[in-house]
Design a protein around this nucleic acid. Structure first.
Lengths: 199, 199
DNA sequence: CTGTTGCTGAAACAGTCGTACCATAAACCC
DNA sequence: GGGTTTATGGTACGACTGTTTCAGCAACAG
């Protein structure tokens, strides 16, 4: 046997690469500037990750891992009213600390729309979020298998996140959440929701 | 005087370039493939547009022009109920023919979030849409200067468009619109909306 | 010491990018 | 014909891309 391997190096590089991508975006990502910022070389990046594509995949997985960890903790307790939970979700996801993740989220999804062939998994990710929010908003839903309510809530949150990210107008966004919460409170017990192709 | 100028050429090229970008996306846009697809040369593209950046700006302006024209016609008549108008907007914007514009919309906004320095105007665009929808949903709004209601409606629509574009699950998206319309109908006359720092 | 394995820097490869330069053809006026 | 302006084509430049190749150093075992 020769020199012992160092599996921690790849993990350390991945963490710093994720930081770099979260800060600088995915669009113009290039190996040489990335390596320079990380204090390593393109040679080592390919040595550790095989190719740029695999590196990007690893970075995205890492970013999702970081985000998902907190999501599970912070918004699972479902004791308050739905409006309170909505406010909690919004306050958490719209906080400035989350902005890099939000930016990356939109960047990835926009690219996935333009080139779906490279992203086989993203549809499943949406489904997962539906499940998570479905549990969170169970008392607003039609039943345990209702995906429409979480879809609507998630759509409003994501649409507002896009608005906030583009315009930076936090007050208007906050007030829109507040108005939506008021709507939820008013129409909460679901006054005959199915008006079209029912079920 | 020499040979007469042909101002139509630039316009023709621009129209076809917009088609190309709407079909192929902005991300990997490159002069040589674009010129080849248009039956011209990179030389002429720079001759007509000065630089790639100006070409892209012209293409985006053209795409926005095309979209805005129809928007003004189709959803201005505001005689029906707010829910009917919402359904009309959704049916129009989520139609498959609009998909290329929606894709481009998200691509541009994602890039604008990552590199705001190149897009000084996008915030204004959002403001314009707020005005347009503000008129459309006047009877839902607090007053003529209310931007919160259009912000909320637009956020839901855009969030659902993103969901639809990524997952392709039209039925779930349609039903989410329907549920939101039901919420609007139930809480329509604005039952004391301002619960926080309301004005 | 040699041997073996893991790591890493330097350089080069083939390719694409936006763009600039140079020449020339095309269409007009005189 | 020349003079002048517009419209092209061809080509090359410098910079960048992801990746590969070659070499050599580092750390261990025997």
């Amino acid at each position: 046997m020769g020199r012992p391997a160092d599996p921690g190096r790849r993990k350390r590089t991945l963490a710093r690469a994720a930081d770099y991508v979260l800060a600088n975006g995915l669009a113009g990502l290039s190996l040489r500037p990335l390596a320079a910022a990380l204090g390593t070389s393109p040679r080592m990046l390919l040595y550790d990750f095989g190719s740029k594509q695999e590196l990007v995949a690893a970075v995205l997985a890492e970013a999702r891992r970081r985000g998902a960890a907190r999501v599970a903790e912070e918004l699972l307790p479902g004791t308050a009213t739905p409006e309170e939970r909505l406010r909690g979700i919004w306050a958490w996801i719209s906080a400035p600390e989350r902005a890099p993740y939000v930016r990356l989220f939109f960047e990835v999804h926009a690219d996935a729309i333009a080139h779906p062939e490279n992203y086989g998994e993203l549809g499943d990710v949406v489904a997962e979020w539906c499940d998570t929010l479905g549990v969170t908003f169970r008392d607003l839903a039609d039943g345990p298998a209702d995906t429409v309510t979480p879809t609507m809530v998630m759509a409003l949150v994501r649409g507002l996140l896009l608005d906030l990210a583009v315009t930076g107008d936090r007050e208007r966004a906050d007030r829109a959440v507040e108005r939506f919460a008021a709507l939820l409170a008013a129409g909460g017990p679901l006054t005959s929701p199915s008006a079209g192709s029912g079920t």
